[in-house]
Write a protein that binds this DNA or RNA. Structure first.
Lengths: 196, 196
DNA sequence: GTCTATAAATGGATAGAC
DNA sequence: GTCTATCCATTTATAGAC
């Protein structure tokens, strides 16, 4: 093994991926490797040792983000919840949960959008979205309810992307209400399409 | 006046803005001025004559896109509709209207997201979003209904951003139903929060 | 395992011809 | 009003030292 500085190669990769996320969120995908390296506290040469090219760094970053979004959802699954729609509720909770720190999952989708300009990332995201959609489809809710609830959650989550802010109390309450809607079949008839 | 090629300066600007949109949609904000100029059929020098810098080009492009989104909404206003929520309905219709061609409005938001990495654009978008929100707030719907409906519309509109596609029949129907929801106050009590 | 130095390419912007 | 030529800064990536 070579000369290390008191941390493992894995730690350095993690450091670099986090730095890349932070830099790209703010400056876009065309942020330089130098910026990323500097923020991570390593040199550009050091970065290139861990990620052979910029595209590889960005692809790994995308993979990492998609995976962490997935585990966000899983961590929101309620063990005591056995009703249909439990994955959908976890999805809503994941999207509405404010990030612990600023750099974390909250802005992950804005970052993904930047990364989507790389074809390999776009393909990865498409496959991931398709699989998640299949799992949600199998979650036991009527399609109409599922579509409404996930669309509303997506909308709140994506608001910051075009300059809007969705952190007022009315948005915070919407999450609870969407979850309640998935839990109470008697309300589905009150929706515009439930009566025919 | 200088040497022209059979079109006005305005035409050339339009040509350049369209080309910039097309190129940036596909290659991201770091696409080169050369690429933009080439697609528009002018030289890089020609481009720089019309837009003094790259940032100016991008800012103008953002302004153009926000404006065209605004007129999309206005064009969806129903002159016969005098009920509260008419702007909200126009908003929903605008977001649910499928793009004429693939490259057009459907990807417009992906483009905006790219542009948002430029600070001047981010500020522009923020102001624009705030004003639209004020207008929607004054549209006569209860906050809870407005928030649900606009969030759902935003969600559908933004789905392509992360690889999902929202063009199935279930999504096409959601638009009609959201609009119906804004029109029928008697349904609002059927929503999870309408009963207390 | 990480650094410095540098090669090679590209991009933004200017100057001036036409 | 647009083009060519060119300058300069930036950036990715390589080579090799430590």
């Amino acid at each position: 093994m070579g000369r290390t500085v008191g941390r493992s190669a894995e730690d350095t990769r993690r450091l670099l991926l986090d730095a890349a996320g932070e830099v790209i969120r703010n400056r876009g995908v065309h942020a330089s490797l130098d910026d990323v390296a500097r923020l991570a506290g390593v040199s550009k040469g050091g970065l290139i040792y861990h990620f052979a090219s910029k595209d590889e760094l960005l692809l790994e970053l995308a993979r990492d983000l998609l995976q962490s979004f997935r585990s966000d959802i899983v961590s929101q699954l309620d063990p005591d919840d056995t009703m249909p729609g439990r994955l959908t509720r976890a999805y809503v909770r994941a999207l509405f949960t404010p990030a612990e720190d600023e750099a974390a999952a909250r802005k992950a989708l804005a970052l993904i959008t930047q990364l989507m300009t790389i074809p390999a990332v776009a393909e990865l995201a498409r496959l991931d979205a398709e699989e998640l959609r299949r799992e949600l489809d199998a979650d036991g809710l009527p399609t109409d309810v599922l579509v409404l609830v996930t669309a509303a959650a997506d909308g709140v989550d994506s608001a910051p992307l075009w300059g809007a802010s969705a952190d007022g109390p009315e948005y915070r309450r919407l999450g609870d209400r969407l979850i309640e809607l998935t839990r109470r079949p008697e309300l589905w008839n009150g929706l515009p399409w439930g009566e025919g």
